[in-house]
Design a protein around this nucleic acid. Structure first.
Length: 590
DNA sequence: GCCGTTTTCGGCCCGACTGTTTTCAGTCG
């Protein structure tokens, strides 16, 4: 078994133990163990097991070492099999219902024979749940509502959609006279491609009016919690938003804590402990357990930390941008002053993958160019679909030639300051050939090669297909490498390591498709690939003028991937891009 | 189940909120 598979087993054990009402600290030990395992490298795990040194990993004791070793060598764990057999499988689903934890599930099972969502629903409808000790009418209603909305509530949301809801809320909070500071935290602030719920953090002089404003926001469908300093609401889409209000001197610590990620926070706390300090959402204080809460509060005030930079500095670190706080080595890099200077939205000078009404876009060439000019871009690449993308009104050779001529004429007219590059998003056919002949391709400034059909080929076929396209001398960049649609469609099966190797070897760019549904290549792959020389282009894949703004999502992903300005072609000035494209063409046999 | 300048037992983060209670247990983050 691989380490991630083993970690999944440990996590499942934790869930099952929790359901059985086991000691919560034992449950946590399994969760901690799973995380510790994920943090070591695959080969390292094999070595540690072989040398019987797995126990030296913090969080892995005698029992976990034995279980991990058994899983790693045999692929099975008798303890896990027995545990699974002792728990009704439907009970695991019950844990997902808000308001239900292990204790209540135990009671429901013991008193009412509830073993899954169906039997719980029946018991609620009969009123048997409300009659139980410790339960009541409200709990019963809440459980029914939770069951009904389970799917919508469990759903994640695109960063783009979540940000559109969150930004006016932050603005609204800051406008309140009682509010001193307000930020959105959580995975939204870390610019994750999808977001589970929204976390708002506020420091205020008076809390009641802030809570009152929050629960009365337009679009709120349901207030799920409301207290003095905390509130939770649910929007129509199922998106949940949490508000927390803290004293201003605590704001920075709470902001850091609720921005996360969990792994980042764990590592930060460990670092603090190693320096005799204890870090939490409440503050940074000496780690010794002595002293009353009041004394600790005094200590907090004495060592004032005004912003996150000072918080990181207090632990001997350079500022770590929220996007990098994933527990993936950013703390070590910050210690050594080796954090990359991340690309910014304002660095962008243009984009290459955009559509017009010639294929399936909703704005004309002139409209798209005007919009690019309004954004201050020096250049805009038009890449409409090729002829095989019949469903997208792809251009045949004659229509493409006409479009190229239009683009040349538009540039000559000097109507816009923005230069337009004539390109095409050329289908990579099922066998890896491109959708136009070489002469047609040679008439273009650049070529984005993309897969649009036969998405379910096996991995070897798809990989060979894409690599063949990369090897084509006229291919400038690879479009949306995996074809994934976040929350909707899985990525195609493709060996990205080989694709990246081929792109580097042939000097082909891989696009970071900035469509909020794609963000493809995934940010997790960029740091290593760019370090090896892969050049990135942030392309919005815009089908209308509003779509050009999606580059912001692309910048988010690029930043999470640790990319610098230099590594992103679309930040380069026009002259340098032209020279780069010309040099590529020169290498190409005419 | 893990951990130890409290070293083999007794902690392990803990405060806020809800719904049910009449002083608190369970859940959540």
């Amino acid at each position: 078994m691989t380490k991630n598979e083993i970690a999944d087993v440990l996590t499942e054990i934790a869930t099952l133990l929790e359901l059985k009402g086991e000691n919560p600290f034992k449950v946590r030990a399994y969760q901690t163990g799973a995380r510790a395992l994920e943090a070591i490298e695959e080969a390292e795990l094999g070595r540690l097991i072989a040398e019987e040194k797995l126990g030296t990993v913090k969080g892995l004791g005698e029992a976990l070492v034995q279980k991990i070793t058994e899983l790693h060598t045999t692929g099975r764990l008798i303890f896990f099999d027995n545990l699974k057999a002792s728990v009704e499988p439907g009970l695991v689903d019950l844990l997902q219902i808000p308001g239900l934890g292990p204790k209540k599930i135990q009671v429901l099972k013991a008193k009412l024979g509830v073993t899954d969502i169906a039997s719980l629903t029946a018991a609620c409808h009969d009123g048997r749940v409300a009659a139980l000790d410790g339960f009541g009418e409200k709990t019963q209603e809440k459980l029914l509502a939770g069951i009904k909305n389970r799917e919508a509530y469990g759903k994640r949301h695109l960063w783009w959609d979540a940000a559109a809801i969150a930004e006016p809320i932050v603005t609204g909070l800051r406008a309140l006279p009682q509010v001193r500071r307000a930020e959105a935290a959580g995975s939204l602030r870390r610019s994750m491609e999808t977001v589970g719920d929204l976390d708002f953090l506020v420091s205020a002089t008076d809390v009641a009016p802030v809570v009152a404003w929050f629960v009365a926001m337009p679009g709120v469908k349901e207030v799920t919690a409301q207290g003095e300093t905390k509130a939770s609401v649910r929007f129509e889409s199922g998106l949940q938003a949490d508000l927390r209000i803290v004293p201003d001197e605590q704001f920075v610590f709470a902001l850091h804590h609720f921005t996360g990620s969990k792994d980042h926070n764990v590592q930060m706390r460990q670092r603090a402990l190693a320096r005799g300090l204890s870090l939490s959402e409440w503050g940074l204080v000496p780690a010794d357990g002595e002293g009353t809460a009041k004394e600790k509060a005094e200590k907090r005030k004495s060592g004032k930390v005004e912003n996150e930079s000072e918080l990181f500095a207090a632990l001997g670190l350079h500022f770590i941008p929220p996007e990098l706080r994933e527990g993936l080595g950013e703390i070590e890099a910050a210690e050594r002053a080796e954090l990359p200077r991340l690309v910014e939205l304002g660095d962008l000078r243009g984009a290459f993958h955009n559509h017009t009404t010639a294929s399936d876009g909703r704005n004309t060439l002139a409209e798209m160019t005007a919009a690019a000019e309004a954004l201050g871009w020096d250049y805009l690449g038009i890449a409409d679909h090729s002829k095989s993308s019949y469903q997208a009104n792809g251009l045949d050779e004659a229509r493409l030639a006409k479009q190229v001529a239009e683009i040349r004429a538009l540039n000559d007219s000097k109507k816009f300051k923005t230069h337009v590059f004539a390109g095409s998003e050329v289908d990579i056919l099922a066998d890896g050939r491109l959708d136009y002949d070489d002469a047609t391709l040679a008439s273009l400034d650049y070529v984005v090669a993309s897969v649009h059909n036969a998405l379910t080929q096996d991995e070897a076929t798809m990989t060979a297909r894409i690599i063949r396209a990369i090897e084509h001398p006229r291919t400038t960049m690879l479009g949306h490498a995996t074809g994934r649609l976040l929350l909707r469609r899985e990525a195609s099966r493709v060996d990205l390591a080989k694709v990246i190797d081929a792109a580097i070897a042939h000097g082909v760019i891989i696009e970071l498709n900035a469509s909020p549904w794609r963000l493809d290549l995934d940010w997790r792959l960029w740091r290593k690939a760019a370090g090896r020389g892969l050049l990135c282009a942030i392309n919005p894949d815009a089908h209308e003028i509003e779509g050009l703004r999606h580059v912001r999502a692309g910048i988010n992903a690029a930043r999470k991937g640790g990319l610098t300005r230099e590594q992103v072609l679309t930040t380069w000035p026009l002259k340098r891009v032209r020279e780069w494209l010309a040099a590529r063409s020169a290498k190409t046999p005419a």
